[in-house]
Amino acid sequence: MEKGGFRVDPVTIDTTKIKTEKKEPETALEKLEDTGLISTLLAARERKGLVLLTTIDQVFNWARLSSLWPVTSGLACCAIEMMAVAMAHHDIARFGMEIFRASPRQADLMFVAGTVTKRMAPRVKLLYEMMAEPKWVISVGSCANTGGPYHESYCVLKGVDNIIPVDVYIPGCPPRPEAWLYGVIQLREKIKNEGYGAKWGLNK
């Protein structure tokens, strides 16, 4: 079937050849093979066609979770741990997140790292609103979660979820970098299972 010089060929995959026996995947490579993606691509390559079979959800979510760019907005103590997470020892670059953007316009993710005082709350909200969709928020530390040790204080917000929606809460005062990375992994899991347009309430 020739169509304007571009050859379109339907792909048929013999599924019996791809998986001969059901074995629990262990290594990362085995897991990847288990998805059937590699075999599909190889089959497509044999027929010299550019065919990729997947769902929009998977592709979009994969792209989104693989390069979450956080906005640089340290509020208090937890911001120092945010720096520690970004540095070589804990290396958040493993998650494609090392690029902390100074501008919220270029960021997908906001770490609310530290005490949100009543004076700072409107600014935090503005910062969140300036970020482009889709966007996520991780509330880091007891102060941002509930007010923490400053719960009784006259000038501290009792949890940042009073002003902006929060996806993941990380407890600790401040959380260890390991806890921080665990929270990031939880957010990635959450994004992985999102339906297309879930942020707009279209398809859950």
Partner: peptide, 14 residues
């Protein structure tokens, strides 16, 4: 300044 005023001194009295 004052964006991180957490009322530490007052909390000390409690």
């Amino acid at each position: 300044m004052g964006y991180l005023h957490r009322g530490t001194e007052k909390l000390g009295e409690m």
